[in-house]
């Protein structure tokens, strides 16, 4: 009886092995061009902000506050006003700001616990509030001042491109609410997406490119003037950050 059992199992084993091998060969050789294309390409969500369409209404800031119940005094998303020049040659530009979801994020490099990381599946930089210890190293490392300590949890917090919405296929709250459609959101790696087309066809810039962060928030017609430029150009400049930190870092 034992022998027959053994024989049976051996026979089963051989049969199963054969099937397995056949299956393996089948999957390896099955031509699936569509799927192969989809898996080769990683998703990198990106935002293009067309400042020509921005009227500085702060709807995005408010939508963000409402979406996340961001504590008073803190901002995940904000709009800066840049006023410059002397009458009659004056201008007022608007610069919506948020986390740049960098492709080479300095905050991730310095995080001592691995609480902040860049998601492989969509390129969004997130903070795991259960692991973060609130050491503020990432806040020092971020050249965009995008991070803050959430007083409720004591951990680092920042814009995450509305991950909970985006993962359900809905646009981020700020994009959804933008009156002038100044914010365009999508997968940068999909050549048919609107962001990819805008990045390809418009003269886009990023903020603080020299920091080597490879940001994924692009701006069209952004005013990059800062205090140093204004001093050099001998012109009046006032930057209103509309956040607790009255000065840009």
């Amino acid at each position: 009886m034992k022998n027959s059992d053994v024989n049976l199992s051996r026979r089963n084993l051989v049969a199963k092995a054969g099937l397995g091998a056949a299956a393996a060969v089948a999957t390896a050789t099955l031509p699936k061009p569509a799927k192969a294309e989809a898996t080769d390409r990683t998703v990198q969500y990106a935002m293009v902000i067309d400042t020509r369409r921005c009227v500085g209404c702060h709807a995005c800031s408010v939508a963000c506050k409402a979406e996340f119940d961001v504590p008073l005094g803190e901002t995940r998303s904000w709009v800066e006003y840049i006023e410059k020049g002397e009458y009659p040659n004056v201008s007022r530009q608007f610069l919506p700001r948020l986390c740049n979801q960098c492709s080479d994020p300095p905050c991730v490099r310095v995080c001592p616990t691995g609480a902040t990381y860049k998601r492989k599946e969509d390129g969004i930089v997130v903070v795991d509030a259960d692991i973060c210890i609130g050491c503020k190293y990432c806040m020092q490392a971020c050249p965009y001042d995008a991070r803050f300590i959430n007083p409720r949890t004591g951990t680092a917090d920042k814009c995450d491109f509305c991950l909970h919405r985006v993962s359900q296929g809905i646009a981020p709250a700020c994009v959804n609410t933008c009156q002038g459609r100044a914010r365009i959101f999508g997968d940068m790696n999909d050549p048919d997406s609107e962001v990819a087309k805008l990045i390809a066809t418009e003269p886009v810039t990023v903020l603080r490119q020299e920091m080597g962060t490879k940001p994924n928030v692009y701006y069209i017609a952004a005013d990059h003037t800062d205090d140093g430029d204004a001093r050099f150009q001998h012109q009046y400049l006032r930057v209103d950050t509309h956040r607790r930190a009255k000065e840009r870092r």
């Binding site: 609480a115 973060c132 210890i133 050491c135 409720r152 949890t153 004591g154």
Partner: peptide, 25 residues
Amino acid sequence: ELGTFTAAFENGDFWLLFRWIRLFL
């Protein structure tokens, strides 16, 4: 100076006091 340490007193979450142990995990 840890944000979690300060928050522990504000929202009464005792375990946040020891969140720094994450450094050594």
